[in-house]
């Protein structure tokens, strides 16, 4: 298999590794896992409540190189996207960008799931906040 330098770069120098405050109302956290290989991935997004645009994305993945590269690429793509645009990211986009071999396709699925989970968490929080505001 031949890989582009970009892919190897994601693997060797993953971007946006780290974490943000989970309790921040503007931060959504997604924690997902791939049972067949035992990977765990935590992906977080920080959304500007005024614009709905993702201003920051962070991840921490324990797993193979493909899982790390997939989540690294995902965080890079999330920057500057609206929440709805982020939900449109598909695992096949990641597969194509990284030319993942079939044995590693589940890593891209994991990244897509992590995006969805993080945004679902953010939406849940804002809805709760809205409820809280409304209740006041």
């Amino acid at each position: 298999m031949a890989y582009s330098n970009k892919v190897l770069d994601h693997y060797n120098h993953p971007r946006n590794v780290g974490s943000m405050d989970k309790s921040d109302p503007n931060v959504g956290t997604g924690m997902v896992g791939a049972p067949e290989c035992g990977d765990v991935m935590k992906l977080q997004v920080k959304v500007n409540p005024a614009t709905g645009i993702i201003e920051e994305a962070k991840f921490k993945t324990f797993g193979c190189g493909s899982a790390i590269a997939s989540s690294s690429l995902a965080t890079e793509w999330l920057h500057g996207k609206t929440v709805d645009e982020a939900l449109a990211i598909k695992n096949t986009d990641i597969v194509n960008e990284l030319s993942l071999p079939p044995v590693k396709i589940h890593c891209s699925v994991l990244a897509e799931d992590a995006i969805k989970a993080a945004i679902a968490d953010y939406k849940k929080k804002t809805a709760q906040n809205a409820d809280a505001v409304a209740a006041n």
Binding site: V32, G33, D113, A117
Partner: peptide
């Protein structure tokens, strides 16, 4: 029960939290 990639929805969230913390 193993066909295709499993989604993380199949994994209990407590297990993921636990494993993540152990890894950290």
């Amino acid at each position: 029960l193993d066909a295709g990639p499993q989604r993380s929805a199949d994994v209990p969230p407590e297990l993921l939290e636990e494993v993540f913390e152990l890894n950290m």
